[in-house]
């Protein structure tokens, strides 16, 4: 019988421990997969021209949504409504900018923080829910906001808020999302492997054992939700200023489906996976713009195929190929 065998590459084993790094080759082995994507992201926009600049900005902002989705998932809360955070952040900064007339940097920062507080407060009562039940509630939340804004006609009602001041400086407009995105990506990857992150993962695996280990699970869920809300609300707040408008479409299904699809496509729980996923999906959907609403169908088909046929995701696959040798052995 022939069996497939996977063995770590020698260089991986040697460079696993920081003390063992002894050659440039090993340092490069560890650095390249991190440095090359970062450099690409920093240099590409200047090489590609202004249309792709816009695509990269949107990718980074959507990437933040996907990263925050993944953080929420790593504590065991699977959200079907990332658009909720996005919309709240968008509306908050729209409110500060247009209705209070604050300058752009203030409205983004205030919009992010106050939006995150609102999201955390609203989600606080439902954080105890598990599994499907949390997903159901998050599916309902964006719809809930749309209906409330429609019925009460606050914040511009069905028209939304238009005429919001633009960011102005195209360098800032480009590099702030890129830096925030990269900072969140590496920050979250670091966080999840720290002791704090291990507690978060343990809550997903078995919250009762975490409780009986003397840890206030609810407080952790609140903190985690606040971080998630900050990232997603920033994404919404920034987007509002890019489009110079915010409307009910900020709560649209696209913004819930895209982060979810990116995460599933790239590999749930790895953060790098969702990041890769968004940088595949957002440019793809730009090419698919001509198909109009069929884009959402594409997302759902990709999501469906990935979840059913490729549950592992792209990133774990790439990682395995990079670190391991596969060979067939006679058993």
């Amino acid at each position: 019988m022939i069996r497939k065998e996977r063995i770590d590459r020698g260089i991986k084993v040697r460079s696993d421990d920081i003390y063992a790094i002894s050659s440039y080759r090993e340092i490069l082995y560890l650095l390249l997969p991190r440095v090359i994507p970062v450099l690409c992201l920093l240099l590409l926009p200047t090489l590609l021209g202004s249309y792709y600049e816009r695509v990269i900005i949107i990718s980074c902002l959507m990437g933040l949504l996907a990263l925050s989705w993944d953080l929420l998932a790593s504590i065991g809360l699977f959200s079907l409504g990332q658009a909720f955070f996005f919309g709240v952040g968008g509306y908050a900064s729209g409110f500060f900018s247009y209705q209070l007339g604050l300058p752009v940097p203030y409205s983004i920062v205030l919009g992010t923080v106050s939006g995150a507080l609102v999201c955390t407060l609203l989600l606080a009562p439902v954080l105890r829910l598990k599994g499907v039940y949390f997903s159901i509630v998050t599916l309902a939340f964006p719809l809930f906001f749309v209906r409330i804004i429609e019925s009460t006609k606050i914040l511009g009602g069905t028209e939304g808020i238009t005429g919001i001041s633009p960011i102005g400086n195209s360098w800032i407009e480009l590099y702030i999302p890129i830096f925030v995105f990269l900072f969140s990506l590496f920050g979250l990857r670091r966080l999840i492997n720290s002791d704090y992150g291990i507690v978060l993962q343990a809550i997903r695996d078995n919250d009762r054992a975490v409780i009986s280990s003397g840890i206030n699970v609810y407080a952790y869920k609140l903190e985690c939700t606040f971080i998630v809300s900050l990232l997603s609300c920033f994404s919404g707040a920034f987007m509002t200023h890019i489009y110079q408008a915010v409307g009910l479409s900020a709560f649209a299904l696209d913004y819930s489906l895209l982060p979810l699809t990116s995460a599933v496509l790239g590999g749930v729980g790895t953060f790098a996976g969702p990041a890769i996923g968004t940088f595949i999906l957002v440019p793809l959907s730009e090419f698919l713009r001509v198909f109009g609403t069929l884009r959402v169908v594409f997302y759902s088909v990709i999501l469906f195929l990935c979840i059913v046929l490729l549950p592992e995701g792209i990133f774990p696959f790439l990682k395995r190929k990079y670190h391991q040798i596969e060979r067939f052995v006679e058993v």
């Binding site: 079907l80 599994g131 299904l253 109009g292 059913v308 549950p311």
Partner: peptide, 29 residues
Amino acid sequence: AVRRVRGIVLSEVVSTFALGVGILEFFRW
């Protein structure tokens, strides 16, 4: 949609949700 991911709550929800959204948005298009 379900057989292959049976027992994994998230995957069940996501695969049926994706199926549903796909159908509905297809008709919209």
